[in-house]
Design a protein around this nucleic acid. Structure first.
Lengths: 208, 208
DNA sequence: CTACCATTCAAACGATCGTTTGACGAGATT
DNA sequence: AATCTCGTCAAACGATCGTTTGAATGGTAG
């Protein structure tokens, strides 16, 4: 997995992210993780206390990064006086899809995220809502300015729909397969474009 | 889990669906399943051959049902001469959300579905595309009649986005929590309405 | 040089995993 | 009545799990 030059701690985190995504939290054993990372088995408990501690750290690292990028992109969009609804949507969508395809982590985290949702583990769910809710709320405030025809409830419904579509796209669940003639980068940009256009049309629809 | 009157086989399937959804395929042990179902541990291997056999059967049962309901609703919509785009979307979305909240299974299957996606297990993925792809293709044919302004690729991108939002909604991942004053039934109908309206607006948007 | 601290290591712990086995009994078949 | 089949059962199998232990290692400070 090509992490030979990093510290023990970082090698474990990188490999764990990949293997948790591929086999699940319960399905990926610490022996698999440590063997792949070429570190001693006991290193996980030494550096992270327990397997749960490792899971939480894998998680926090990527989510914090995504939150930072989204909020920065939002701030940049708002700062421009001619910002459009599409620009704000782009600030929400682009960092997510970028992170899902970047080399380090290789889209593993988003599958870990999807799995964490699926696990329905209350601890992880609470962690997510605490560390992600405020981002969604900031975006909602900005969206509300562009969409005065929607009341708060209607707006949140629609943002929820968008978050669903983006999460799904991040995890690469979709049926649309990239053609050999299209680079990963071009494919991602296509996905971003379609998502932004689709979401903008959905948001602009009249209230019910 | 109140399955006392069913056969051993059915009790195992019902309990397994719930526990797989709650703890994952690897996280839920056969000992948990058989103890909850009040059957002998060896019954799983007797009736399903292996744990993988049980997983596949849990899966096939619900997916077949969903496919049947969606295609029936599509046929009913197409049969009516005044059918709208929204009617077709409804045929795609309503069966999914209905199944996700019905008493038997209790929405467990959709989390099992989400997990199967996340597992990224090639066997399960192939199974899914083989047993679900034709449904999506049939819907695409009908959508294409309503949306002559979209070429095939653009249409599939948008259907993929819709499928993502619906899957997300099925799994009840969303941030929107049902209010105590709203019944589950009313909440589901609201979700269907919002999804249909949002998706219709997204589909009707001009091509890129 | 000595003492110290952080880190890594091989080895083992008990617990739990999926699966297999062979016995047992109730009904159906000959 | 004797035989066979199907489903269930308690018990055990070897494998693998997360975690713990105590010794070895190597760089740093006194």
């Amino acid at each position: 997995m090509g992490q030979a030059n990093f510290s023990t701690r970082e090698r474990i985190l990188g490999v764990a992210e990949t293997l948790f995504a591929r086999h699940g939290f319960a399905g990926a054993s610490l022996r698999q993780v440590t063997a792949t990372a070429k570190v001693n088995l006991a290193a996980v408990n030494y550096h992270f206390g327990s397997k749960d501690g490792l899971i939480e750290e894998v998680f926090r690292r990527r989510l914090d990064e995504l939150n930072r990028e989204r909020l920065a992109a939002l701030a940049a969009a708002v700062a421009r006086e001619d910002a459009t609804l599409e620009d704000v949507l782009d600030a929400f969508i682009r960092p997510a899809l970028n992170q899902s395809q970047q080399a380090a982590g290789g889209g593993a985290f988003v599958r870990v995220l999807a799995r964490a949702y699926a696990e329905h583990d209350e601890r992880l769910r609470k962690f997510l809502s605490e560390n992600y809710g405020h981002v969604l709320r900031e975006f909602a405030l900005v969206f509300a300015r562009f969409l005065p025809h929607l009341d708060k409830e209607e707006l949140y419904w629609r943002l929820d729909i968008i978050a669903g579509a983006v999460t799904y796209a991040m995890a690469d669940f979709g049926i649309i397969k990239r053609r050999a003639s299209t680079s990963e980068d071009a494919h991602r940009k296509q996905a971003i474009g379609h998502l932004v256009a689709f979401a903008a049309a959905g948001l602009k629809a009249p209230g019910m």
